[in-house]
Write a protein that binds this DNA or RNA. Structure first.
Lengths: 134, 134
DNA sequence: TCAATTGTTTACCCTTCAAGTATAGTTTAA
DNA sequence: TTAAACTATACTTGAAGGGTAAACAATTGA
């Protein structure tokens, strides 16, 4: 019931890039230093954020990372799902074979959790990185 | 970001006991059989539910478990917290030493997560086992 | 073209924790 | 006292989280 460390680091990365001028290229070392993230660990999560379309990367001399969209178009949910995959409160909400009653409409717990999960997901999607600046 | 197996089992146990007449004593074997929970595993989680005041136990011949309160007074949150402890979306919400900005009011991510966590907790508390019957 | 810079990929290690199992012990009714 | 039934503690196994390492690919500029 907790977001993991990689996601937390990613929040910081995206928030930091959001404070930069639009289109600015920031190298990994600068990000790692300012956000207190282990350099090697950063290298593990950045490609994931890149594949998710949240940032773009540029290799070679003078390369680094660039925020791919406007901060108003990136939500906490985008980052969470990029790193951890879809939010699932219970494994019966991933695969109904895990549900003791084999899914709705028979399992009341399943139904209640599904509703809460829907609202939680919406909450995470409501928060945009532009909201977190200043 | 997921409730664990023990909590899921506990939901089933409490829901099952909620279907019984008030004050009924149900032995561990019956619970394990009907709810498809490994007997040994059940013995691990039941004392936790007992200590939390959700059920009471009776030892000896003819003993078993009894729901300690009315199903309308037991929420999903009660069970989650009994098994997993308080809901914390991020470890910076447990101990501020983990927060990159050393806690509110300076860390915007911290504040956003705290709000979402508050609402999530309220959602889990809103669902009572009496709502899940029928 | 070559070398330095910078991101990419893949693989590995270690610790922690979830999930389940095992065993011995305590209480209680009959 | 005996058998039923819960309790306490500890062990095992496998997966996942967190972090590290090294070889590789792309780009720039001298």
């Amino acid at each position: 019931m907790q977001i993991n460390q990689a996601t937390d680091y990613s929040f910081r990365v995206v928030l930091y890039l959001s404070t930069q001028p639009r289109g600015a290229v920031v190298d990994a070392n600068t990000i790692a230093q300012t956000q207190c993230i282990p350099m090697r660990y950063l290298f593990k999560i950045m490609p994931t954020l890149t594949r998710a379309g949240i940032i773009t990367s540029q290799r070679g001399v003078g390369g680094g990372y660039i925020l791919a969209k406007d901060p108003a178009e990136i939500s906490l949910l985008d980052v969470i799902e990029a790193i951890e995959g879809p939010i699932r409160l219970n494994r019966c909400l991933i695969d109904e074979q895990f549900c003791s009653k084999h899914g709705p409409p028979d399992c009341p717990v399943h139904n209640a959790l599904a509703g809460i999960q829907r609202r939680l997901t919406a909450e995470f999607d409501k928060v945009r990185f532009s909201d977190l600046l200043g």
